[in-house]
Design a protein around this nucleic acid. Structure first.
Lengths: 144, 144
DNA sequence: AATAAAATTGTAATCAATACAATGCGTATG
DNA sequence: CATACGCATTGTATTGATTACAATTTTATT
């Protein structure tokens, strides 16, 4: 898809949430949507500043916080030191390989988690993080 | 239970993991076990320094990292800015009330999460975080 | 074009976490 | 019993992500 049509689609998506579709906001959302990598603020900034030289890191922070408040992105705290962001709001889990550090989505049936312990609670968001070894790292480890 | 017998029990628990049962380590593990509050480093330090005046915050950090590496405690990254610790290694989830900020355990059947997406992966750890409103905050909110 | 409102920017400040060198303590050895 | 070694602890300095905030720029409105 061309960038120009992406801009329109994301622009109207932001308008629906009463967010002014500024160029920076559109590009940041476009970056989030176009890759499943759950980037950090630094990754987003480093990638986009090449094309938007005036971009500041504060804007990236502001924009992501705005997206999270508006429920069109969510925070991934799978790591202790750095916050990651994900614009995929569907129910899915995140797996982090402790060897190669890659983070991967996986699907599961949200309703399958029995939460009778939380009767009377209002559940707004669910984050599921798994840790372990991916098949590649598993294979190279067993060779040692 | 008296502190003296706790010291012995936790001491042998640490020895099993090849961790020298120093007084600081025993008291930090005792603190983790005695409350389900998933304390932060600061909470642990502030509570224990009253009884162990020589305690340093670095020791709390070192000790918790050691516990995590030895798999007798785990990191709770339910919050963006602060790391919490939990010595309950059984399968359970954590619920955080976005209003009163309290964190609460809840149980669920770990096996109920279908992970066919992760066939071939070695899963070592699972963290399940839910966010929302607890019954108390829900009640006081609906009064407004 | 003029004004107001909102977005963006850059710098400074905050704060959790780590690095590291120095000190203290316990255990084993002679 | 004294000494030496290894490990635990300590305190300070540093790092690095995030936020605060005031100044500037951009956008929208009349």
């Amino acid at each position: 898809m061309e960038l120009s049509s992406k801009v329109e689609i994301i622009g109207s998506m932001l308008l629906k949430e009463n967010i002014k579709p500024s160029y920076a906001r559109i590009r940041i959302m476009e970056y989030l949507l176009s890759r499943k990598s759950h980037p950090t603020v630094d990754e987003i900034y480093t990638a986009l500043v090449k094309e938007i030289p005036t971009l500041s890191k504060t804007t990236v922070y502001n924009t992501l916080n705005l997206f999270v408040k508006s429920n069109i992105a969510r925070v991934i705290t799978i790591e202790e030191n750095e916050t990651r962001y994900d614009a995929d709001m569907s129910c899915h889990g995140h797996f982090k390989c402790e060897s190669c550090k890659a983070i991967r989505d996986f699907s599961f049936k949200c309703a399958a988690i029995d939460t009778s312990d939380l009767d009377g609670f209002l559940i707004r968001e669910k984050n599921v993080y798994y840790y372990g070894l991916c098949p590649d790292c598993l294979a190279s480890e067993s060779q040692d």
